[in-house]
Every structure is written in structure tokens, then in C-alpha cells.
Design a protein around this nucleic acid. Sequence first.
DNA 1: TGGCGTTTGTTCGACATGCTAACGAACCTA
DNA 2: TAGGTTCGTTAGCATGTCGAACAAACGCCA
Lengths: 190, 190
Amino acid sequence: MSNKRHGTSGIEGSGVAYKIPLMSEAHPDRTDACLIALRRILRATEQYERSLAQAAGLTSAQLRVLQIVAARGQAGATPKALAMQMRVSQATVTALVDKLVARGMVTRFRSRTDGRQTDVVITPKGDETATSAPDALQQRFVRAFEGMRDWEQAQLVSSLERVAAMLDAERIDASPVLTIGEIKDDQPGA
Amino acid sequence: MSNKRHGTSGIEGSGVAYKIPLMSEAHPDRTDACLIALRRILRATEQYERSLAQAAGLTSAQLRVLQIVAARGQAGATPKALAMQMRVSQATVTALVDKLVARGMVTRFRSRTDGRQTDVVITPKGDETATSAPDALQQRFVRAFEGMRDWEQAQLVSSLERVAAMLDAERIDASPVLTIGEIKDDQPGA
DNA sequence: TGGCGTTTGTTCGACATGCTAACGAACCTA
DNA sequence: TAGGTTCGTTAGCATGTCGAACAAACGCCA
């Protein structure tokens, strides 16, 4: 009766996820399959982030800050830059940085060139944490990815980028760009 | 710090024009590109979910519950099933359902067959909300997807599924949060 | 029938993210 | 020097999420 197994709820349900007719024309199934795969990706990521953060003793938001700051090295990053990069408010950044400071992961320095600014700089401990924190998701992905054949890799890259473009198109307006590893120094003077 | 060797400052963010400098055997750039694309996908989704939820007057978590419940129709779903499907604790589900009940989106019925259980059933209003709530992310994606050529669609599907498989494979242990059994109980027979 | 362990859902208390609004300090410009 | 702007922080609020404790219902078993 009501226990007919949960699952078949469109996107959420994973019940449909596995067998899809790959070779057909104009299939709504195909769209579904994409959506479902996307959901799976999202969900897997979510979960990984959580467990990761747990393992590292930090929450994922904190870790994100830590990673950005770590990538900046001694230059540090201002709360404003962090906020822009992470797309959250400065208030949120303040809270996150507070926690990292409390844990000895980063330090705040008042900028000498501009008294309003604060440089959030990584500490040795923070750096170690950032580096050692195994981003399980990425590692898994990287491992699998590098085991693929060349053409498969190429295809995957283009597919993912395509999807990314489809999704975040025109959502990037006045914000500084993405990030993962790179951080652009945003001089508003530009 | 996603990647310590992310020295390629050319692949970031918005400008992602897919430029891969070197095409040797090892393609760290390619891996980076994938990860970055993935991040973009994640973030875009996050943001869309938020704005969506805002537009619909519901938060994304609530909407997720609503969608699942709506998909179950009159059968409803138990909090336990919801918790498993969403991978959150029952306590969380209770809180979410509370809010949906308060908004008249769903109703709780005590199960007649098992007094311990509760069936969360969608209301007409909830159903309308669930259906009308435009999942902006999906819509955007669907639109773009359906504008693609056939072979492109096929390729995208297989790429996404591949990634999904890479990410959520074998992750069902080792982590407190994701212990649930939802994944395996919809195995298609294998 | 009665008792005891188990399952299910809820309540409670604690934290984390994230926001907006208000505010003070520093800066810049006129 | 005055006024406006930028930056960071503080304060207050809403939400999600968890674990622990708990009550009710179930099931099994003697």
C-alpha cells in the first residue's frame, strides 16, 4: 500500500535514474535523465561537503573561507573580497572569519594602506588544515577522471562546462568571478 | 585550495572559454576545468534554489518536501521516508513538515494501519504550489537542453550520468549522515 | 494476556548559515 | 574641514539541521 517504496518523485527520486534509453529522438526521458543526474551530483556533493567539513572539524562554509584565504597566501583577503567571491554578505563573512580566528586558523590584520580594510591571513595551522583537509569529493572525482581515456576526458569537460554555462548564464553580473583556485585581486579602480 | 597546482590562471570563472594550454598525457588543466565547472553548477543551483524558494514563498528545503509529497499523491509519505529520501534526520523533517502544515500545504494523517506512522499528504493548495513553483533551474536547463542537437543531448546525458556515478558511488558508508539506505533500495534488480 | 524491546514521530536545546539594518571608523573629495 | 562613501562589525532574526530524550504504538513471545 503506502509502502510502495518511495522514490519515484521526478527529480528527487532515484528510482528512475539508472536505465535510460540512450538512443532515441526527442526524448523527454533524456531531459529527465539529465535532471536526475544533476540532482545526484548535487546531492552527492552536498553530502560530501558535510562529511568533509566534519572530518576537518570545520563546516563547509568555514572551509571555503579557509581555502580562499589559504590560496591567497600572505597577501590575505579582505572580508569584502571574500564576500564577493563567496557571494554572501559581509556580515556572514565576519561571522565565519570570527570562527576561524577562534580556531586559530586565520588572523586578522588591519591593513596598513587602508585603515578600513582588514586582511585575513592564513596561519600555519590553518594552512595545514586547508591542505590536509581531503576534499573527498574532488579526490574521488579526480581519481576517476584521470582514469578515463583522453577523448572521454575531453568530452566530459566540454559537457560540464556546457551545463555550467547553461545554468549560471546571466547570473554572473557584477560579481567577481568564480573561484576555486584562483583569486583575482579585485581592485575596484578598474 | 582545491588544487595546489592550480597554476593555470587561465581557466577560471566567467570567462571560461575553455582554453587548455597543453595537451599532454596528464591534463591537470582538464581536471581543473571539470572541478570548476562542477563548482559553477553547484553554486548556480544553490542560488537558484534560493531565489526560487523565495518566489514561491517557501524555502528550498520545504519545497523539496513538498515536491516529494506531491509526487506521492494521496498515498502521502511518512516522515521517515521523507527523511531517508532527503537524507536528513527525522527531526528535521518534522520541522519542515510543521511549516508546510502551517502554510496549509500538507496535512498530517495518522496512519490507520500503523498507529505510529503519520502520512503527510498534499493539499490542493500544496499541490498547486508544487506544480506552479517554477523550478527556475530546471526550466532554464530544460530549455537549453532541448535546444541542443540530438547527439549533443545524448552526449550530455551520458556525461552527466557518468559524473553522477563517479560521485555518488560507494559513498554509502563511512559517513554518519549518509548511512541511509535509500540508494540501494531502488536497485533495479542487480 | 501481559511484558518488553523496537520503531516512529515529536519535542527540546544547541549550533551553523545567512540576511538586513544600523553603526563607527577610516577614507576621499570638494 | 565637512560631507559622503566604503569597509568591517555588531545586533537581531529566520531557517536548517542535528542528537538526545521521550511517548505512543507495534510485535514478539512466553
